[in-house]
Design a protein around this nucleic acid. Structure first.
Lengths: 240, 240
DNA sequence: ACCTGAACACCGTTCAAGT
DNA sequence: ACCTGAACACCGTTCAAGT
């Protein structure tokens, strides 16, 4: 049978034959970063990533490795975007600025906060942040507790962004909360539940307030955490 | 062709024909709970669960619904195991006891803490805990902030257990941390990193200390959080 | 060295058909 | 009502073979 005349040229059977440049690891991570910004770190598959760079899945294995290796590449990139706050700030202000930037950056890459909370400091790009942060705590007087305090603060920040990521993804519908608490809203016998119910209603009726709620929960958590750590420093230095 | 004489009776073509009782939703969740205790909430598949109850996957859909519905069933069961601390405790002690029990229960069902941090209070079984907790904060003087403070404390607790779950699952190898920080251990120019490196070494060389480390990180996070919240109460009531 | 194309061993989910 | 058995549309990963 003769070749179909409607097909002008048969599809080249290799990137090389098509005149395409070889794929690089950097390009793959570039594209994975974009897909993560669009759909979250768990919102794309290796096959979709391969399609996005117009290659076969095996090409990703050849240049980078398995999905986990690609994810680590994305983590490094995102951590690299984190600015280092000025080193002359008092420790509390330094951490306040850091976690403020942290949320801004991580909200652009849903799912990264979760991995960061777990892998935490094992990401190479975090090295300057860790050194500066731990040193500020050491200089402030936390002594051997500095590493623990640092881990707690950063972990808490990443965890709250992570929960925000997943709730935005729709893991918890707004309606679910009203379903569960609605009936208790005016229950005078259960004032604690009534308060939670009223709160759920307010968010359900004013969906535009949800973003603001996440921001204020984050700020609240960060401030309480820093308050608690500052309190600990007082206890440590008052009676040494 | 005659029936193979080695097969005494042909396999019954239905549970009913085999004399097996009908599967119930309760049994399915029972088994899902056991699988979660063994392999974590993300460590079993619907097909494995179906095999465990000697049924087809479609049977689970018939009685319960999709995988998410099964997971919600497991969440309810685990939350139901949480004891309610005595109501006459001061708020701080009440929460300290609650989150202590929380970790004990949740560590037995890896992955549940993560879902709880996200779905949080939308689980029916949490209703008594929420009412008591929020009410204690209201009575202590947190006013309209009570719901926020409650959410922050419980969320923080669940999140730290969740990170512990995933690290235990091996998401972060112990060696990775040494790989990243090992070279900085004696670096006098980077004392913050050196402290982190020394810490990583200690855990890598004494793996039996890891469980203790998670416990102490959890306790540290809980105490700092409660300190921070208590500090906030002082600020709220000193100048009302 | 880099890529192709197919295969393997899985998933969650759906559905017509049986009892 | 409850279950069977197969099918559908996916996954991540591997690998011999091509260029």
């Amino acid at each position: 049978m003769a070749a179909n005349p409607l097909i002008r040229s048969s599809r080249p059977r290799s990137r090389w034959a098509a005149g395409l440049p070889a794929v690089t690891a950097e390009q793959i991570i570039d594209r994975a970063l974009e897909l993560t910004a669009e759909h979250g770190l768990d919102g794309w598959t290796l096959r979709q990533l391969a399609a996005a760079i117009e290659a076969y899945p095996a090409v990703i294995y050849h240049h980078i490795g398995d999905r986990e290796a690609v994810v680590l590449g994305v983590l490094e990139r995102v951590v690299g975007m984190m600015p280092l706050p000025p080193g002359d700030l008092p420790w509390r202000d330094w951490f306040r600025v850091l976690v403020g930037e942290l949320r801004t950056v991580l909200r652009g890459y849903p799912g990264v906060a979760h991995r960061l909370a777990v892998y935490g400091p094992t990401v190479q790009g975090a090295v300057p942040i860790i050194d500066r942060g731990v040193r500020l705590l050491q200089d402030a007087g936390f002594g051997k507790e500095s590493v623990l305090a640092y881990s707690m603060i950063l972990s808490t920040a990443c965890q709250f962004v992570s929960v925000e990521d997943e709730r935005r993804r729709g893991a918890m519908d707004r309606t679910r909360m009203v379903d569960v608490f609605g009936e208790y809203r005016d229950n005078a016998d259960m004032p604690g539940l009534a308060a939670m119910g009223a709160f759920a209603y307010e968010l359900a009726e004013n969906p535009e307030k949800i973003a603001g709620y996440y921001a204020s929960l984050y700020d609240y958590a960060v401030e309480r955490t820093l308050d608690g750590v500052a309190q600990r420093l007082e206890d440590l230095t008052d009676r040494p």
